[in-house]
């Protein structure tokens, strides 16, 4: 196997994960760089959804099919990551709902949902 072939194999074998990394990092960037509390939560959902994509990608098998047993199918994709991510999605929506509820209460008591302004109000001077 020559080097060029190796690189191509690596590219086609891994590009999926690389894109997922980019997606995760965009979400992560929104969480830490943006000051708007709603936007932060949206960033968090992007971050988490991208992690889900990573998990689901790893379970995929070439030529496989959805893991529901049927006759004359021999190759199934891996069901375990699906199970894990079903749970993780539920955890994600639970966190989102709670975060949004907090944002509503913060808006009511601070009058704003911008991080800089809130911190300015808490530490005057």
């Amino acid at each position: 196997m020559d080097a060029g072939n190796d690189w191509a194999a690596a590219f086609f074998g891994l590009y999926n994960y690389w894109i997922v990394v980019v997606l995760m990092m965009v979400g992560f960037y929104i969480v830490i760089a943006h000051g708007n509390l709603i936007k932060k939560i949206i960033g968090l959902t992007i971050f988490q959804t991208s992690v889900f994509i990573y998990y689901i990608s790893m379970g995929n098998v070439d030529g496989g099919t959805a893991p529901i047993l049927a006759d004359n199918i021999s190759q199934y994709s891996n069901p375990l990551p699906h199970v894990l991510i079903l749970t993780a999605i539920v955890v994600g929506i639970a966190t989102t709902a709670l975060g949004l509820a907090l944002a509503i209460r913060i808006k009511e008591s601070y009058g704003t949902i911008e991080e800089e302004i809130i911190q300015g109000m808490d530490n005057p001077g």
Binding site: V31, L37, K40, Q48, V51, T95, L102, R105, I106, Y110
Partner: peptide
């Protein structure tokens, strides 16, 4: 409220890192 929100963000980032 603000403390809880900050904790939520940090905690979720931590949990997502652990998940990765």
């Amino acid at each position: 409220l603000w403390a809880a929100y900050q904790y939520l963000i940090m905690g979720t980032i931590g949990a997502t890192f652990i998940l990765i």
